[in-house]
Amino acid sequence: MNIRSARFISALIYLGTALLAAALFLVATSGGDYDWVARAGGAGWVFMLTTIVLMPVVIPLVKRKYNR
């Protein structure tokens, strides 16, 4: 695995997980009395914060695995 593929794999993991979290948010709000702005905006905010939380965790983990 080279450094580029390590970055790609990291991005796949954190973006994939963040997308999953956003999707879960959308599913959770589907039954309630929420307008589309709240649902889309909320999903966007969840996606962004999840990405920020995951990036510094996932990137070093994958890099460490790549370095091994």
Partner: peptide, 17 residues
Amino acid sequence: ILGVHALALIVFLFWFF
């Protein structure tokens, strides 16, 4: 910093739901 972002996410979900 990481903890704060995680907390901001939890706070958002709490006040939203």
